[in-house]
């Protein structure tokens, strides 16, 4: 798949996740839009995981610690054939498995997440298992930047280094916003990369919306043998929709009819650039 084909996919993913959030009248719009390009690269270029091998010991594992951005994950999994996209018509409905945070009742999801600060520790357990078993699969996890205020993450950062888990890659969706405002106004994270480095991780930065750059970084892991890898992916919350970008109000905002139409038109205009 070419970079342009991936870019077109990203636009379609955005259209779909907005469609289902609009239909459900619920969802984490801003964060899904900020991480969807990362998921696109992971699932279409990096991860050795598919509906055919899901459950096989050799598959790569992806654990989404920032579980609230599940709508991005759902549309990517549907596109990869883990379930029929029509299932997403039931998003957030009573008795639907497609709830507002990931659960293992949905094919393709490795672990229930949603309470923040759990996914990295779980991923450490999985990566440690691979080391103990001598297995060569890789483990990837996606963290929110606001999530990093949860202290449990820093426990896990220590443990991953202690055990030299170079089969583990964490990606921070660094969009600088959380529910009530700027991350740096809530709990200052910077200098973030230096913190991860000081904890013993091998750290790189990338534009989280640049599929080529993210591909290069993800294909380079482990950055250092014997160390876990961290990618601080610079992103824009609400990416792709002009009036949603960099506005924390869209953390779990749902567009009204007019806003929804405008959003889809903006994405259609982007698609037209590739025709």
């Amino acid at each position: 798949m070419t970079d342009d084909e991936l870019r077109i996919k990203s636009i379609h993913y955005r259209k779909r996740l907005l469609k289902y959030i609009k239909k459900a009248n619920a969802g984490h719009t801003g964060g899904s839009l900020s991480c969807v390009d990362i998921l696109n690269v992971l699932y279409n270029r990096i991860l050795n995981v598919s509906p055919g091998n899901f459950g096989e010991p050799y598959r790569d594992r992806y654990i989404q610690s920032k579980g609230h951005s599940v709508e991005a994950l759902y549309v990517v999994l549907a596109d990869r054939g883990f379930f029929a996209e029509s299932e997403l018509e039931t998003l957030c409905r009573h008795r639907s498995h497609y709830v507002g945070h990931p659960t293992r009742k949905v094919n393709g999801i490795e672990q229930n997440t949603g309470a923040l600060g759990h996914g990295l520790a779980f991923s450490v357990g999985v990566a440690l298992s691979a080391k103990k078993d001598g297995a060569d699969y890789k483990v990837y996890t996606l963290l929110g930047d606001g999530e990093l205020a949860e202290g449990s993450n820093w426990e896990s950062l220590l443990t991953a280094t202690h055990y030299g888990l170079d089969n583990l890659t964490a990606i921070v969706d660094r969009n600088n916003l959380q529910l009530t405002g700027r991350t740096e106004d809530m709990c200052n994270l910077e200098p973030l990369a230096e913190k991860f480095t000081a904890f013993g991780w091998s750290v790189r930065g990338a534009d989280g919306h640049d599929v080529a750059a993210m591909t290069d970084e993800l294909r380079s892991v482990p950055f250092d043998l014997g160390k876990p890898s961290m990618i601080v992916a610079k992103t824009i919350k609400g990416k792709g929709i002009s009036f949603m970008e960099n506005d924390h109000k869209w953390h779990h905002g749902v567009p009204d009819d007019e806003q929804y139409e405008q959003a889809q038109q903006e994405l259609d205009a982007l698609l037209a650039e590739y025709e």
Binding site: A121, F122, G125, S129, S152, E155, S156
Partner: peptide, 16 residues
């Protein structure tokens, strides 16, 4: 690190 202990255990159990 008790929180870590429990979630890491969950990850270990996932792999058998």
């Amino acid at each position: 690190a008790e929180q870590n202990m429990i979630s890491i255990s969950a990850g270990l159990s996932q792999e058998g």
